[in-house]
Design a protein around this nucleic acid. Structure first.
Lengths: 195, 195
DNA sequence: ATGTACAACTTAACAGTGTTAACCTATCGT
DNA sequence: ACGATAGGTTAACACTGTTAAGTTGTACAT
């Protein structure tokens, strides 16, 4: 394994084990028995190193979602399964999920936009499902692409509140998620014979 | 104005103007013509200083939402107005909004939970509106409190995606928000005579 | 075989960080 | 007049990201 790959591995391990505050170039280097400056031979700076980790994590999430796609042709079912897969992934790999969103908005201009648009893959799957549901008159959506982003944003919000431990202590997590997903799905279904 | 207040003011100003990466104890101190160590006379450490800023920001958001409550007794209307007020506040005061969510989950145990549960105020308003809507058979909700948290989480997700510039470049922000809010509200309305 | 170029790494240093311990000094109550 | 205390300061420690310059070993051309 190349040093570059080893750096990525150790970085991710330290990030997941010790959190954001406790990762430094020197600590990563020490684990590999090299000096901190060696890292700069493979990554322009710390931000670029972290960005590579983000890329990896996005790919993992994408792969996980793709694998979760159930067979069959019921768009509603597929829709729900994607949402649940997303939430499941996030809750089961919290640190890895957090990596994806750790870059603050203010620091974004530095990063090439395309990097973050890898995640488009996932939207396109979602968009396809929504479009099918729309054609079958099961979903009430205007623009499937925008709706795909909307569902993603809302799901991210749900996950994010749980992961950041911002949930009211009186509310059981699982119950919260179930209700939230229900509302979420409900928001897309057609209203049969509205008043 | 006491030094403590001045520290809070300058901290907030620097945070909003220069972002997270560019705020340090020494920089704050320099602006007030004191030394960095003076800050420790009023705040236990940097985290507690930032926590005080979070408190302030949560209160501002709460106040803003309370002021936005429209008169009248149409729960659906009130429901929408709160959501729009929340989104409006977040988009108009992005850095201030971000302050509220800047503390990472891993660092949370340090903080007294109650601090973050100030925001309960807001939920209780929302919960009340939802409960009214439920009583009038306008909303299809099981548990109004959980639903209030759900709506908040989903709204936060929408806002968060926009603020973090994670939106697909092909999608106009305003259109995204409109659609998202529509889905969001839709998810709570009763389905008249379902199939 | 010798010289050279280059890749891969290190050393030393800079400027900045949060934080602590020890110190100073003006003001106030007795 | 004296001692305590509030409200600061100085100096230092152990870190941080990052850069410029230096070292070393290996591969290739002559």
């Amino acid at each position: 394994m190349s040093l570059r790959e080893e750096i990525l591995d150790v970085s991710k391990e330290l990030l997941i084990k010790n959190g954001f505050g406790n990762i430094s170039m020197r600590k990563i280097a020490k684990r590999l028995d090299v000096t901190a400056t060696s890292i700069y031979l493979y990554f322009k700076n710390k931000d670029e190193l972290l960005l590579s980790l983000i890329e990896e994590s996005i790919n993992n999430l994408n792969r996980s979602l793709k694998n979760s796609l159930v067979d069959g042709d019921d768009p509603v079912e597929q829709f729900e399964s994607i949402i649940n897969a997303y939430i499941g992934y996030a809750l089961n790999h919290p640190q890895e999920y957090e990596i994806i969103y750790m870059v603050r908005a203010e620091e974004m201009p530095k990063y090439p936009k395309e990097k973050f648009e890898q995640i488009r893959d996932t939207y396109e799957i979602l968009e396809k499902v929504i479009r099918e549901g729309k054609d079958k008159e099961l979903f009430e959506v205007d623009n499937p692409l925008i709706s795909a982003y909307s569902i993603w944003a809302q799901t991210h919000g749900i996950v994010s509140v749980v992961l950041n431990k911002r949930l009211d202590t009186r509310i059981p997590t699982q119950q919260f998620i179930n209700q939230a997903v229900e509302h979420l799905v409900q928001g897309f279904l057609v209203q049969k014979t509205p008043a």
